[in-house]
Design a protein around this nucleic acid. Structure first.
Lengths: 204, 204
DNA sequence: TTTGGAAAATAAACAGTGTTTAGTAAATTT
DNA sequence: AAATTTACTAAACACTGTTTATTTTCCAAA
């Protein structure tokens, strides 16, 4: 019978309706204005309804995070095009930094906030970032097969590059770059310079 | 007359009483359990009283952050002892990482959370981290005077080292290292290895 | 020493939050 | 058409940060 299938389809439609609204509010209105009640109002349902589709707010945030990672992967697909491994690595880094600069709220949700990580079951790894991490991992593997980098271990290389990129972006997102007294465009230049400098330093 | 002086002294005592309680709760009970009401209960005053001493919660968090930076400076004073600039740089990095690992809630407040930064006046730089940043800056200046590092600009060097250290620590604090499937002690080793590797890479 | 006024502390309320429960309305099955 | 499952929601609960009006405490002058 096709009726239970329709029900299941409607259920999925409702789920995407919710996270689409949540994602949009997150990007436009920001984290502050994104409450269960506000999301419910936007999709014209009662707040309690959201709990029929998601266990709690953390689980909802986890789904929004998943959406955000899709957007990062899209950015990679658009901006990482070179066949030269080193050039690819540079494109990945700059695409990552660019994404963080343009979507600070999303970046916060993806890499900084504690909340969405609470809905991950014990002994189950976080896998929302898997695909985008693999992009980096594959690129570094290609680099190291050609012996282009000052690393012995691919995992260590991936972790190091990620940490540097994340360090630069997150210090900006969390407004800690006020430490060095510079504003706006200067910060962008500083971050870009730092990334390029780092890529030179790890090159053989 | 000494009476207004006593009043001022009592006012300061009350202020420290509040942030001491807040700091303790932050470190022991964690961020979740640290509400204005809970702090007020701990020091046996009404919640409204706190607002006679601090404008809002963000300002309170900013003061707690200040306390946290004092603790980081103490850690530096204890653990950064070498006269050799490169060895000093290594000590600074490891002390920083160690601090972040042992005080994740404090680290969050110092370098990741948005909240405490909201109480900084426009056009006024963030200065809670000034002293600890200067420790790094001085060390790097000494390193570069002896031409030991692959950097031209001290500020760029400081920013890069800080970003790398922060990247490593904050990805751990925010539980994003579940990405690489490893737990507990392995993560510590990975972070330490990454730091040491980085220090080698930036050395001339 | 009593009284007036300033200063300090608070009770209670406001507007918001995430979440649960009990009850209603709609859709499906019998 | 009646019974039952499903979908939804109104209302409440226990919190949150913050403000206002009121009370208590303190000090200084009459």
């Amino acid at each position: 019978m096709g009726i239970s299938e329709r029900k299941e389809r409607e259920r999925q439609e409702m789920r995407t309706k919710i996270i689409d609204a949540a994602t949009a509010m997150f990007m436009n209105e920001g984290y502050e204005k994104t409450s269960i009640r506000n999301i419910a109002e936007k999709i014209e349902y009662s707040p309690a309804t959201l709990y029929l589709y998601y266990k709690d707010k953390d689980e909802l945030l986890y789904e929004v995070q998943k959406q955000a990672f899709s957007k990062l992967e899209e950015a990679f697909a658009r901006e990482v095009s070179s066949t030269d491994p080193l050039e690819r690595l540079s494109q990945i880094c700059h695409s990552y930094v660019h994404f963080g600069k343009d979507n600070p709220e999303m970046y916060d949700l993806m890499f900084m906030m504690q909340a969405p990580m609470n809905s991950i079951k014990e002994n189950e790894p976080w896998k929302n970032n898997k695909d985008s991490f693999i992009v980096l991992l594959d690129c570094l593997t290609a680099c190291m097969e050609k012996d282009l980098l000052r690393f012995d271990d691919v995992m260590l290389a991936a972790f190091s590059v990620w940490a540097m990129g994340h360090g630069l972006v997150s210090l900006n997102v969390s407004c800690r770059l006020q430490a060095m007294n510079m504003t706006g465009a200067n910060v962008d230049i500083l971050i870009t310079t730092a990334i390029d400098h780092y890529l030179k330093q790890i090159r053989k």
